[in-house]
Design a protein around this nucleic acid. Structure first.
Lengths: 198, 198
DNA sequence: GTACATTACGGAACGCTGCTCCGTAATGCA
DNA sequence: TGCATTACGGAGCAGCGTTCCGTAATGTAC
C-alpha cells in the first residue's frame, strides 16, 4: 500500500534494465522516520512496513541492518566531519575548536535514540557501521587533537581513535537515563585529555 | 540426567518440605564456567546444558537473565565495594586511593567478557543488574570522591553515579577491540574529574 | 504486438534469542 | 503407605535478524 514517493520520473530513461522500482532513497526516508519514532533499534520489519515493502527489498538494498543505519546517517556524519576544519579556522584556539566539535558529535549521537549503542562494533555485521564512523571521523578528530597539542609541542596522551570511541561509549544509554549526564562526562574526558598540555 | 553434585546431605534435616535438589550454588558455578568460556552473553540454554539442567530450573532460581549475572558476580562486586574504605585508609592520598579503586573496578569489568555491556541498564529486565551495581558501588565511589575533594574544599564536578556509569561505559567492548584502550581512557576521565580540585 | 530474459518484489521460513508453561517425578510428612 | 507439596525438564511462544524462492513486473528483441 501507499504508492507515494513519485521519486521516479515516467519519461524516457537510460538504457538499463529492471532498476529499483522503489528507490533506495524512499527506503532511507522510511527508515529515518521509524528511527525517530521508535529508536535506532526498531525491527527491520517495522521499517519495511513503514515503507510499504517486504523485508526482502530492504535486505536487497542494505545487506545488513547496520548498513542501513549507516546509510541513513551517512550525510549527517559527513556534515560532522566537515565541521572539523571549519571550526579549527573559526575558533580562537584549537582547544576551543576541539571542544566545539566534540559537542557537535555528542549532540549528534545523543539525539538519535540508541545510535551510540549500535556504534560500538560489537561482533558480527555492525563492523560496517563502526568502520564508517571511524574512517570518516578519526582523521578529523585527529587533526583537532594535533592542533590543540601543537603549540605546547607535546603529543596527545591517547590517539584520536580512542578519543572518538571513548566519547561514543560515554553516550551509550544517554537518553534512556535521566540521571546520566553524558555531556558532562565527555567534557571531563576532554579535560583529562587536554591536561598536561601547556 | 547427570545426577551429580551430591550437595545435599542425606541425614536428618530441618522440617522444611521440598527444597531445591540441585542447589542454587551448583547453578552459579556452572554459569560462572560458561561465562568464562563463552562470555557473559552466553545463552541461558548453554548454561542449563552445562549444569545438566533444564532452562526452567534456571529461571526458577533466577527469574531473569541479568539476575543470574548479578548472582554470579555478587561477591566480586562485594569485594570491590569493601576495597574502597580499605584503600582510603592505606593510600597516602585520597586521590591515590581513588585511582587505585578505579583501577580495581576497571580490571573487574574488563576481565569478565562483556560484563560492561550488560551493566548498562538498557530497558527491560537488566534493571536488576544495574540497580545492584549502583546501590553497592555508588556510595563507595562517592566517599572516595568526597575524600579527594575534601582537602581542596571544593565539590566534585559530577556525582559518583555518573562517574561510575561513565567508567562502566568506557569499558564496553574493551576486550573485543585490541586498539581500544579502556584503561587509559578511564584514567583520563578521572584526571578530568580531579582537575580543578586543589 | 508478442514472447522472452532479466530483474525486483513480498513475505514465508529459518535459526537464534530470552522466557513461560505444564505434565511428570521426586520429596517429606502423617 | 498414601498424599500434598514442590522441583524438574524441556516443549513451546514471541521476537529478532536474515535467507530464500515463487511470482510479478519490466525492458528488449523480434
Amino acid at each position: 500500500m501507499a504508492e507515494a514517493q513519485g521519486q521516479r520520473p515516467p519519461g524516457p530513461r537510460s538504457p538499463q534494465v529492471g532498476r529499483p522500482r522503489r528507490s533506495r532513497q524512499a527506503l532511507l526516508d522510511a527508515a529515518a522516520e521509524v528511527f525517530v519514532s521508535s529508536g535506532v533499534d526498531a525491527p527491520v520489519r517495522e521499517i519495511a512496513a513503514r515503507a510499504g515493502v517486504g523485508v526482502g527489498t530492504i535486505y536487497r538494498h542494505f545487506p545488513t541492518r547496520p548498513e542501513l543505519v549507516v546509510a541513513v546517517y551517512r550525510h549527517q556524519v559527513e556534515a560532522c566531519a566537515e565541521a572539523g576544519p571549519r571550526l579549527l579556522a573559526q575558533c580562537a584556539t584549537p582547544e576551543e575548536a576541539l571542544r566545539a566539535w566534540v559537542e557537535l558529535f555528542v549532540e549528534f549521537l545523543v539525539t538519535k535514540h540508541g545510535l551510540a549503542d549500535v556504534l560500538r562494533g560489537d561482533s558480527a555485521g555492525s563492523d560496517a557501521l563502526h568502520a564508517f564512523f571511524v574512517d570518516r571521523l578519526v582523521p578529523v578528530c585527529g587533526s583537532l587533537l594535533d592542533a590543540a597539542f601543537a603549540e605546547a609541542g607535546t603529543a596527545p596522551p591517547i590517539d584520536a581513535y580512542n578519543v572518538l570511541k571513548g566519547i561514543g561509549n560515554l553516550c551509550i544509554g544517554a537518553e534512556a537515563d535521566t540521571r546520566y549526564e553524558a555531556v558532562g562526562l565527555v567534557q571531563l574526558l576532554v579535560t583529562g585529555v587536554l591536561t598536561g598540555r601547556s
